[in-house]
Design a protein around this nucleic acid. Sequence first.
DNA 1: CTACGTGTTAAAGTTCACTTCAAGTCAACG
DNA 2: CGTTGACTTGAAGTGAACTTTAACACGTAG
Lengths: 130, 130
Amino acid sequence: MLGLSIGEVARRTGLAASTLRFYEKAGLLPSPTRVSRQRRYDAAILGRIKLVQIARSAGFTVEETRKFISGFPADTMPRVRWQALAGRKRQELDALIDSAQKMKTLLASKFDCRCRQLEDCERAFANKGC
Amino acid sequence: MLGLSIGEVARRTGLAASTLRFYEKAGLLPSPTRVSRQRRYDAAILGRIKLVQIARSAGFTVEETRKFISGFPADTMPRVRWQALAGRKRQELDALIDSAQKMKTLLASKFDCRCRQLEDCERAFANKGC
DNA sequence: CTACGTGTTAAAGTTCACTTCAAGTCAACG
DNA sequence: CGTTGACTTGAAGTGAACTTTAACACGTAG
């Protein structure tokens, strides 16, 4: 078999075929070769898609993901501009991780610690505690 | 001063006044007392809003945030249902933190490690390495 | 009194990230 | 040959989370 159909790639990645077409149009995925108009993907596409999925689930927008992917050395974005972007994004990721960890604590503590009332939680946050 | 105006709360929280009204309608914030139709907030609202902001920035939807807030002991949601919800959400947060950390590594390594080409990155992910 | 600034509402508009739809192509099966 | 199933396209639709708009209500400064 020379190439995976869009349905096969969809099955293997868990993304809908419509999403793969959408990502292709958005510049996140390369346009694959065709056999009578139909897309035929090389198995290597799965690595790229995994990358896209991780970026998306980390809160990158489609456009940010595109810049991340297209900013690789072989591509067009200048090093400096990329690094500015990456620096900003790293800070956002730190903030995200911080919020996620706080929420985990809150979910865990809600029923077995000080925060028995919503008001305790609010006060704790107002005082930067908890 | 007996109560903050919506503009003042907006200024202090960084949220738009329209967002505060939107959150109120969505059940994330209590409807405050009024002085000739205008909202007057107790300073305690700031704790609640902080809580909402953290939940939102951790990827909770507005509806999830509402459930989180309204699920507190004093309120209506049964313990068991809450705990199922919290458990599922904790797993999502773990996955989110994992993705965020992976992206941080990728952003850092892109220009100074093995992944000099997009293809290296894709291969690394395909092989679960990197 | 008028104008200004801040507030009010319901309803409509916007952006993002997809999904669904309508109408068609194509290879294979019976 | 017809039909089935997977694919194609561009365009329109969807849901979430806000924002903007239009029209109106106040208190106050000049």
